[in-house]
Design a protein around this nucleic acid. Structure first.
Length: 349
DNA sequence: AAGAACACCAACCGCTATGGA
DNA sequence: CTCCATAGCGGTTGGTGTTCT
């Protein structure tokens, strides 16, 4: 029997995604969750193949993705991990949950590789050319060993987790760094779309093709007022984005004036912080974003502190930072037990 | 000012592994 | 067991913006 082909490549659109397509895709995923990508083009009316939809989601629209400049810390980690793992970008990305493998790969190819080459050129007499050259010199052995060690370690970890589910929170003094499990909150993908739209509006001031009741409402200002989770319960008069589809799923994005105070200022619109607060605030009445329709709130498994007591932006920022810090420290000790020290990578700078 | 060269990065391509029919 | 869709991955390409000449 077999299944029908993924996409027949006829009438399949290629090239950059438009904000409209992004909105349709995110809206659909918020309702149905990621997966079953084959159904996405037909259900949304997107003229994209399923693979393109999946890649767009994983590389760009997925929540929690950090874009923009890499920090020095991230650079060092990438260099270190690349030396350990080679060009296994997905594995490297698992240690930098806010970055996609594509992003890391691009950054490596465009920045870090040159940087390392330059450093090696400037330091050719040094025995610290280090990780790269030394690992390259016996690449067949060293890399294989490291990969093997990494794989063994990952297998061990998986086994441990399987055997002790109740100990899912690894002890703080765990000497073995673990890939960071990124939390997945689809709501905050609006942040990504907002960012996209802001860039888009910057680059292309022409009006979007959203059908809007208010003709003065530009795409950007609309998204500054974006409210998540109001779904079909929101008043149509407030300007629901028209994203008609064959199945007519309800777009989840609507413009709600109740939140414009926080988001009215363009500079304040949908930063990661306020996006998350926004999400928390809109949790209690989320008719469309619940487990029943596939919307996953993995962050809800965290202590309910955040949802009970809204934090200020600064408090949240500090709170998030405190959470992330141990993981980063842990990651920086990655080489321990893998035949490598962080110093090896740090020496490159 | 104009065009060439370069840099960047989103998206695509092709391959492999996996799992369901 | 075989076939095929799907997911995931790494390499590559092409469009666009920036810098250089």
């Amino acid at each position: 029997m077999g299944r029908p082909p993924c996409c027949d490549k006829i009438g399949v659109k290629k090239g950059p995604w438009t904000p409209e397509e992004d909105i349709i895709l995110v809206s659909y995923i918020q309702q149905h969750g990621p997966g079953n990508w084959r159904a996405v083009p037909s259900n949304t009316g997107l003229l994209r193949c399923s693979k393109s939809c999946r890649l767009r989601w994983t590389n760009y629209l997925r929540p929690g993705i950090k874009r923009g400049n890499f920090t020095e810390h991230e650079e060092k980690m990438i260099i270190h991990l690349q030396a350990l793992l080679g060009n296994r970008w997905a594995a490297i990305a698992s240690y930098l949950p806010q970055r996609t493998d594509n992003d890391i790969k691009n950054y490596w190819n465009t920045h870090l590789r040159k940087k390392l080459k330059k450093l090696q050129g400037n330091d050719e007499n040094s025995n610290q050319e280090g990780i790269r050259s030394s690992s390259q010199s016996n690449v067949s052995k060293g890399q294989w060993e490291r990969r093997l060690q990494t794989d063994i370690h990952m297998a061990k970890k998986a086994l441990c987790e399987a055997l002790s589910l109740d100990k899912s929170d690894s002890p703080p003094n765990n000497p073995i760094p673990q890939p960071v499990q990124s939390s997945c909150t689809y709501a905050s993908s609006a942040e990504n779309i907002s960012r996209l739209l802001q860039n888009w509006m910057k680059n292309s001031p022409k009006s979007s093709q959203f059908s809007q009741s208010n003709s003065e409402c530009t795409t950007q200002s609309s998204f500054n007022n974006l409210s998540i989770g109001q779904g079909s319960s929101s008043s149509p008069s407030e300007g629901t984005i028209s994203a008609t589809t064959p199945e007519g799923f309800d777009p989840l994005f609507s413009f709600n004036s109740s939140n414009t105070d926080m988001l009215a200022d363009e500079s304040n619109a949908f930063t990661p912080e306020n996006a998350r607060i926004f999400q928390v605030e809109s949790k209690p009445d989320l008719p469309n974003l619940n487990a029943e329709n596939g919307f996953l709130f993995q962050e809800e498994s965290k202590p309910s502190l955040e949802s009970e007591v809204p934090l200020t932006l600064l408090e949240k920022w500090l709170f998030d930072d405190a959470i992330n810090a141990p993981a980063q420290e842990n990651l920086m000790g990655l080489g321990i037990g893998m035949g490598m020290t962080l110093g090896d990578a740090s020496d490159l700078f």
